[in-house]
Design a protein around this nucleic acid. Structure first.
Lengths: 354, 354
DNA sequence: GTGAAAGCGCTAACAA
DNA sequence: TTGTTAGCGCTTTCAC
């Protein structure tokens, strides 16, 4: 098969409309200072010929590449995909960002990068050199990596940081983690829980501390003590087991536990089972992260629902708006998570055990 | 921020190595007829400068775009993403194709296209004009759409059709649906089921008929009658309800049902519940599609595990190999699905009801 | 085996 | 407001 060049190019359109290339270019890019009549004429030719500009050529001439990179942690992402547990972070990102990109002619490319690798810089630079994306959407833990931020800023690529509020370049976006933790805690307080444990996420993630802060705030507001109620975790199932055991083994164990993600929530359920505690009667459990595994559990878990798609859409919009020179909107932008109340939270059977 | 051009270009490398652009280009593209010494010298400069070729420029000059489009049905994909039930078809596709692409410098772009739209042709042509991908991976139902196949062939773009064996251009790949249906049926026969129902998938999908064929073949081999045991479905939950009710309402109802996807399997479970049938004692159920919803069910369902990642990887390899001019391997390629035996299949309590 | 020239499709800068 | 020119970074001829 012969190597095909572009079927219809800007030249064809220009010839067809009887104008210069430049005029066609101006119409394509919706530039000002073109007579309405011209726009109409050119647009008619574009439609008739079915012309679509070549992204590569646009990129070459120093314009936009219409490409946005969705940067995710390689190890985590591949592990999630392999596990087939329904973790749909990437899907939700695609859902949000692709739908936001489509009307502007942008595309999203999922790019996986090693977090802990020392050549993360080289990997990212290679992707940038190869694709020259107009923007990059960073997810935790990349979003709080100053090496990445610095590199992108220096390259003049606009980017959005999801789940980070650290000072520095780039748009910052959150899902209101502190508020969400507060929401979850308050829900439990309303159910008359007094001892509410929290299994924290990995300290490598900024949002882990926000969740702790939200929980602390809600507890303080209700004049409840947090002592012995905070356990470390790192988002892994194993760390959840350790943390849940620690919480439930203390002198005055909690009647409710908030786990900072789905894996640790599942681990908490497992520990409850091994201790003969029934959920939710003996122990209420809330999961941060409303994944299928959480929803299909028996009982289905009360969970914090993170608006990943919405945040990703906003991230894409911010990046596109910046390029277009339009009003960029607010940053930091917070799109609050909500609480889905299900069957794993209830009034405690023994409000004050032991 | 100043619009940044490529940091390191082929010119820099050429100057650094003291050779012509052409020689650098030859080294990049691993062309023959370059002295080993030259290759080494150029490669050293490339490494030292951290040079990565611009995909856009490569595309412009008539070479490869290093882009592969993963074409999926828009409506279905977005519905799955929104439903958040853990359907991970796209994830598995990405897992397989991205990992296969990475070593060759290729990227994958997920593209959603309306199946039933009359401007599907325009949509696809627009994507091709904009990106000029080196290849396209088609999934059902696109993979069996002759309009799409014809268009891609005419554009000289290599493509792989997953789940289609229809004559025509493009590589064809399957997950051995007939064999998988046979496997599932034989598993039930071994458990001494004699009346095994099948809920078919949408007739718009070629693979629906393959599954029927596999079931029929296994039944015939065991000298079992298929009468009244085949019900129509269209992969939707609703159609599964209708089909399951029909099967279970007939004069000699089945003791086992194979549903052609997860949704219809769930529907079958629901109908079993409403009829007071216990699974697996009164009714065995097998799902085609091993999604989280199936795995997390109580009881977890015996299911056909489709090697989506493997097939997608193979599809990407075929496309890349064709470009590279290497041995392309076989087409049609079949990567057989397997059967995960879980708790929804057992020896029937009443081998011959009524 | 290596290099020089032309051009891919488009836009920035400038001119008219 | 519109058109002309030059050039983006690379690969394809075609010379040498």
């Amino acid at each position: 098969m012969a190597r095909q060049r572009q079927a219809v190019t800007i030249k064809h359109v220009a010839a067809d409309a009887g104008v210069s290339l430049q005029t066609v270019s101006r119409v394509i890019n919706k530039e000002p200072n073109v007579r309405a009549e011209m726009i109409e004429r050119v647009q008619a030719s574009i439609d008739r010929l079915g012309y679509v500009p070549s992204i590569a050529a646009q990129r070459m001439s120093g314009s936009r590449s219409y490409l946005i990179l969705a940067l995710n942690d390689r190890e985590r992402t591949i592990a999630d995909w392999r596990a087939r547990q329904g973790t749909d972070w990437v899907d939700q990102m695609l859902l949000g960002s692709m739908l936001a990109c489509a009307p502007h002619g942008y595309r999203v490319i999922v790019e996986l990068v090693d977090t802990h690798s020392d050549h993360i810089e080289r990997e990212l630079l290679a992707a940038i050199a190869a694709l020259r994306p107009d923007g990059v959407i960073l997810t935790p833990p990349h979003s709080q990596n100053p090496v990445i931020s610095g590199l992108l800023a220096q390259q003049g690529i606009s980017f959005a940081r999801i789940g980070s509020l650290a000072e520095g370049p780039g748009f910052t976006l959150t899902m209101g983690d502190e508020g969400a933790a507060r929401l979850a805690t308050e829900h439990l307080i309303e159910l008359r829980h007094r001892r509410i444990g929290l299994i924290a996420g990995s300290p490598e993630y900024e949002l882990s501390s926000w969740r702790i802060a939200g929980w602390r705030a809600a507890m303080a507001q209700a004049s409840l003590n947090c002592e012995q109620l905070l356990a470390d975790g790192d988002f892994s199932y194993g760390s959840g087991l350790v943390a849940a055991r620690q919480l439930l083994a203390c002198s005055r164990p909690p009647t409710a536990i908030i786990a900072s993600n789905d894996q640790m929530a599942m681990a908490t359920l497992s520990v409850a089972r091994e201790k003969g505690l029934s959920v939710p009667d003996d122990l209420s459990v809330i999961s941060f992260d409303d994944t299928p595994i959480v929803r299909f559990n028996h009982p289905p878990l009360t969970a914090v629902v993170q608006p990943i798609a919405e945040v990703s859409a906003r991230a894409a919009e911010l990046i596109i708006a910046e390029r277009t020179g339009k009003d960029v909107g607010d940053s930091p932008a917070a799109i609050p998570a909500t609480l889905a109340i299900r069957k794993s939270t209830a009034v405690p059977r023994n409000p004050m055990p032991v």
